[in-house]
């Protein structure tokens, strides 16, 4: 099969799938048992070529509205029930510096075990200048989501153009890059120390618990990381779990003078090593 046809086949497959429409006219993107609502959200954006305003609503009560066009997220125009997002809301056009905050919002709205719906409407503002905004491919890559559903083969790489910047995670610090590469599998996390000090992800109460632990035990954690590290100055990461393949695991990583502490939900063996290898380069 010509690898270039894969996105087309994936789209055709998606069109064959019966869509459920909620009473208010919204389209149900992911039922509550969907394995990856975030992937469903990103694919919906990816399939929106013309300029549209998409409102994503979760049955958890959270929602956000994005102006999208040409497989790009142009701007965030509304958010409800989710903390944060101020920088994205204030931006006339989303840029690279907004990607981390936007991913947090997307993860919060596309939370597992909740129904996710989308409503489409006319775009709110002038949609000229489609070269701005964040490419959905970049967000999908950072979230480890395959946009071409069902495709095992990567599509042919497209030569870079001015309008399609290359995905560049090298400028990201090690620990936040690792956290973002983990995607929703890293259910809650925080970074203490280093240049990314204070960055967090996930539900506030879980982050607060991790913060309290690290405040009390940072010396012990540092000592533990020192003892398992064969390369004192290099990045190191410990993961502890009942089995590592199901349930929850604790992740603790150190790099560049900072410590990342987090909780992995589900199979840590599949998500962590892939993220680690991507970040270590």
């Amino acid at each position: 099969m010509n690898r270039g046809t894969l996105p087309i086949l994936a789209r055709l497959e998606a069109l064959k799938t019966p869509a459920r429409v909620a009473p208010d006219g919204a389209r149900v993107l992911a039922e509550s048992g969907h394995p990856n609502p975030l992937a469903a959200l990103l694919r919906a954006v990816n399939e929106t070529m013309l300029a549209r305003s998409l409102t994503f609503e979760s049955s958890s009560g959270t929602s956000l509205t994005l102006d999208v066009a040409g497989r790009r997220v142009l701007r965030l125009t509304g958010v409800s029930g989710v903390a944060g997002g101020e920088a994205c809301m204030a931006a006339a056009a989303l840029e690279d510096e907004h990607k981390d905050e936007l991913i947090k919002l997307l993860q919060a709205v596309a939370a597992p075990r909740n129904e996710l719906r989308v409503m489409s409407g006319p775009i709110g503002r002038d949609s000229d200048g489609l070269s701005v905004g964040l490419p959905i491919a970049l967000l999908a890559d950072l979230c480890l989501v395959e946009l071409n559903e069902g495709g095992e083969v990567e599509p042919e790489p497209v030569p870079p153009t001015v309008e399609e910047p290359q995905i560049d995670t090298e400028e990201e610090d090690f620990l936040p890059a690792l956290a973002l590469r983990m995607g929703p599998a890293l259910a809650a996390w925080l970074i203490q120390g280093g240049s990314a000090d204070g960055r967090t992800g996930g539900p506030e109460e879980m982050v607060s618990h991790l913060q309290g632990f690290l405040d009390d035990e940072v010396e012990g954690v540092t000592r533990q990381l020192d003892m398992v590290s064969m390369v004192p100055a290099g990045p190191v990461c410990i993961v502890l779990g009942a089995t590592l393949v199901d349930g929850h695991s604790i992740l603790c990583a150190r790099a560049d003078g900072g410590i990342l502490l987090g909780v992995i939900e589900g199979d840590a063996t599949r998500t962590l090593l892939k993220a680690w290898n991507a970040v270590r380069g």
């Binding site: 398992v228 590290s229 064969m230 390369v231 290099g234 990045p235 190191v236 990461c237 410990i238 993961v239 502890l240 779990g241 009942a242 089995t243 590592l244 349930g247 929850h248 695991s249 604790i250 990583a253 909780v263 840590a268 063996t269 962590l272 090593l273 680690w276 270590r280």
Partner: peptide
């Protein structure tokens, strides 16, 4: 780990 989800029986250490 014990406090969060019970006694761990598996661990990984990732390094360069």
């Amino acid at each position: 780990s014990v406090e969060a989800f019970g006694e761990p029986h598996a661990a990984m250490v990732l390094a360069l």
